[in-house]
């Protein structure tokens, strides 16, 4: 019986060691990542000091990510006991490079430039794979016009929008002017900060800020109008 109890005790201990993603662990990690000591060592190109939690591909890791510069980012990965795997964060930072962009792509540079403008821009990201994101784009543009803020459509970069498809897409709700304006979304920062999993995705940038508030998916028009009005007025 004692042996059975001992085995049960060991199992419980083992199970507890798995709970690395508990709110407590996340809180500890958040505190560390936002600490003054760490912040001073990391370049702060965007004026945003946030770390973004990323879905991990392995169960034993908890991953937070922060954009560094245009083509670089840091991943901070913990092990299952909530310890940061790299003992020296700065020397062991993982830097990754993305493929070359075309001139037409919407990149981090362009995002940064938009965010520095004194006026506000509503960014609307759509995808040919999500038909609602195409059908409703005209409504979003109309709301932006009413609110007197700029409107910038971006699209899912998995798809190339061929000019000979423009007329067909117009039938779904994408006007020629929207299609001409739309750029492939290739900003790493947006991929991390807004974690684009669903289309449409809307948020506002400008006045030295990239708003973290966003609307994913389609809502009744009145809600879009109400939220965007509130966001732009209280930006």
């Amino acid at each position: 019986m004692r042996i059975l109890k001992l085995i049960a005790f060991i199992i419980i201990l083992r199970d507890q060691s798995l709970l690395w993603a508990t709110p407590n662990c996340q809180k500890q990690l958040n505190h560390f990542l936002r600490s003054e000591k760490l912040s001073t060592k990391i370049p702060n190109q965007y004026g945003v000091k946030d770390w973004f939690r990323v879905s991990e591909s392995q169960f034993q890791t908890l991953k937070f990510r922060r954009p560094l510069a245009d083509s670089q980012w840091i991943d901070v990965i913990t092990d299952q006991s909530c310890k940061i795997i790299n003992s020296n964060l700065i020397s062991d930072i993982k830097i990754e490079f993305r493929p070359n962009n075309n001139n037409d792509d919407f990149t981090d540079e362009q995002l940064l430039s938009l965010s520095k403008k004194n006026s506000l821009t509503l960014i609307y990201i759509w995808s040919p794979s999500m038909i609602y994101s195409m059908k409703e784009i005209a409504i979003a543009e109309k709301i932006a016009r009413t609110l007197k803020i700029d409107f910038l459509p971006l699209h899912d970069n998995k798809y190339e929008i061929q000019p000979n498809n423009h007329r067909k897409l117009a039938g779904i709700g994408l006007s020629e002017s929207i299609l001409n304006k739309s750029k492939p979304q290739k900003s790493n920062y947006l991929n991390f900060s807004h974690q684009i999993h669903h289309y449409p995705l809307m948020f506002i940038v400008g006045k030295n800020k990239i708003s973290k508030k966003m609307i994913a998916g389609v809502l009744p028009e009145s809600i879009w109008r109400q939220e965007l009005k509130s966001w732009s007025q209280n930006y």
Binding site: L18, S55, S57, S129, K158, H197
Partner: peptide, 30 residues
């Protein structure tokens, strides 16, 4: 479960995200 580039399971008991992996043919979920 949710899709985010790949398909994930979230185990609510363990508060763990698990990517569905090991595909014999590479996939893009849609």
């Amino acid at each position: 479960s949710y899709a985010s580039g790949q398909v994930y399971i979230y185990d609510r008991d363990l508060q763990t995200h698990l990517e569905i992996n090991g595909y014999p043919m590479a996939i893009i979920p849609d």
